[in-house]
Design a protein around this nucleic acid. Structure first.
Lengths: 359, 359
DNA sequence: CTGAAAGCGCTTACAG
DNA sequence: CTGAAAGCGCTTACAG
């Protein structure tokens, strides 16, 4: 009976005021813990709220205050543990700051990204964190986000056919240095013919990692052969299927810097299917340090970037962008660290071993 | 300069009306594509909107219409690919229905779940989809969600020390039958001593899976030994560390039904470290069919539950709950299907092979 | 310390 | 087909 009455209509601040025999203003002040209101009045009001099951309507409050308490988070691939961890970090930090996360997952589709951004914009986000879908266009994004809402682009550069001056902040990983470290590590193990395996040349992160690879080789006086650079979709299955491309020409590489962990794990599988023992006959590095990296056979040498920490960082940057007037755009490049495991050593899960892990 | 002027203030429906020299009502009708408004007027208004960069404020509209266009999604472990896929499915279906997803990730903490739910409730969700954190209490959840907002609980039962009559809908997997199928499969391979490995007895999904395991054994006339039931936190690392518990007493099990894929993958690793060849000396099954399951060494026999599809289903159920008056609570149990891979066969990735994969 | 009034950006009868 | 008015649930000066 009480249940029925309670569920008839949402109880509002007005109802509480009437029940407690005070004005709406007073209830509002109680809500925001103003010292102006008499402790006794305050206690009465609070008691009424509790009894009536009042829940604050922050949406209405925000409308009146011209304020927003939500941040949109648009993710290209939530199924990838790297981005899932990132999202968890974003949500954690936003929640701690009193914000709520509006999620949009695009499944790597630029069209869906467009729809998602349009819809989210109608919910008046204080800021947007966007990990762009492949092939998304900077101009299109810029147009739908508009000039009022601060945008933080994560992980991938946002570009366009026509030149665009970025009006967004950027948070990315130090891809160049990561790939440099991985290549250097393989060189230190005695490898000379080191492939760069997987990823697409259109992706900015892939391009940057290739540069790091090339620079490390150059520093060692090595000029990479064209057939050491192998493309593949950044998935385990596609990478596995591309394994043979490493061995089409003699002399074949003895090691590979993989675009990321997913690709590296696919390559591990491909090597085994070919009768090779990874970490023994052929060395492989990854990128991201997803949970599977440490549990693969053999465990994967890779670059750790702390995706959850990146998420917290992204939230902080986005909120900063929302608070200050848009001064100038901020570019942040987060460091990555090499984690050495058996996929490049010979059952020696140590850092910077100098034993030759190649053939 | 134009930039500065544009970014000064958000342009509202009022601004558009003034610019187009019509009333606000007319603009509002244009927005909702009402046939009442003259095509020419309509065109003018639309053109002004475009030029002025108007973006619809759905929050304000919802307030007026006493309507909500967001659904809260609270997830206990977003880093787990199973839940990440689920979340992607939810977001996809909600987006298609014109709703937006409010994300809350709890990292398996009941306290954080409480905070997250409270915060999300203030954003007036049309419904809540909750995958409960371990140890969360039904009464507490019920109290903070209230009677107005339909709640769909996913994956785990929500219980309490005191008896509660559920006022929420439920979507879960057919855990009992899944574990039954896995056990039956191992039996068909000739195993007689089959352990149930990992998970905690407090978790409803773990309890249900244990029942399935026990029933399948019973159907084969086998009474499980107490030391065949091994607890572990549902993570790869903890599971790996528990491997030895399988072999403390003779005769030891020759196969194990693992609580889920993470646990199974940890067990695979533990077996290898012990010098055993999984799928050869010892058979293992998982649960969930996460992407790594097919890429592990050896690939994992497991139960597939289509988490993305579950997500879409959850979204549909939640929206249904939001539309109809709360009639009675709905319980939905989604089927799972056995996927046979090498971790239970001898390099025979086929369904229902009858070859003995145990020792 | 509390109340009456205006307004956030929109929608919805109600007249005309 | 369009305009003037009221109101969603809240906050914020402004009086008293």
């Amino acid at each position: 009976m009480i249940q029925r009455i309670a569920s008839r209509r949402r109880v509002t601040l007005n109802d509480v005021a009437r029940a407690a025999r005070v004005s709406r203003a007073t209830v509002s002040l109680v809500l925001r813990e103003s010292p102006l209101v008499h402790p006794e009045t305050r206690a009465t009001v609070l008691e009424h709220m509790r009894r009536m099951g009042y829940v604050y309507n922050r949406v209405a409050a925000n409308l009146r205050r011209q304020h927003s308490s939500n941040v949109a988070l648009v993710i290209n691939d939530l199924a990838n543990p790297f981005f899932a961890e990132f999202a968890a970090g974003v949500d954690e930090a936003l929640g701690a700051a009193g914000y709520v996360t509006l999620l949009g997952s695009t499944s790597e589709s630029a069209e869906r990204q467009q729809a998602v951004l349009t819809s989210l914009m109608e919910h008046d986000p204080a800021a947007i964190i966007l990990s762009p879908a492949e092939g998304s266009d900077a101009l299109v994004v810029q147009r739908t986000v508009g000039a009022h809402t601060p945008l933080l682009v994560f992980n991938r550069e946002l570009s366009s056919r026509d030149p665009v001056t970025p009006t967004w902040d950027f948070l990315g990983l130090d891809n160049r240095r990561g790939a440099f470290l991985a290549t250097e590590h393989l060189l230190s193990l005695g490898h000379r013919r080191i492939a760069f395996f997987g990823g697409h040349g259109e992706s900015s992160s892939c391009r940057e990692r290739r540069v790091g690879h090339r620079e490390a080789l150059a520093a060692a006086g090595i000029t990479p052969e064209p057939h050491w650079i192998i493309e593949s979709a950044p998935t385990r299955l596609q990478a596995c299927a591309q394994t043979d491309a490493l061995f089409v020409r003699d002399p074949a590489p003895t090691a590979a810097v993989a675009y990321n962990d997913a690709v590296a794990l696919g390559l591990l599988l491909g090597l085994v299917q070919r009768g090779l023992r990874p970490g023994h006959d052929f060395s492989v590095t990854g990128f991201d340090d997803i949970p599977e990296a440490s549990a693969s056979m053999p465990p994967l040498t890779t670059l750790a970037s702390d995706p959850r920490g990146r998420g917290r960082q992204a939230a902080a940057l986005a909120l900063a962008g929302a608070q200050h007037p848009p001064a100038r755009t901020v570019r942040t490049i987060a460091p990555v660290t090499l984690v050495v495991r058996q996929s490049t050593g010979r059952h020696r899960p140590l850092r910077h071993t100098t034993r030759n892990g190649g053939r």
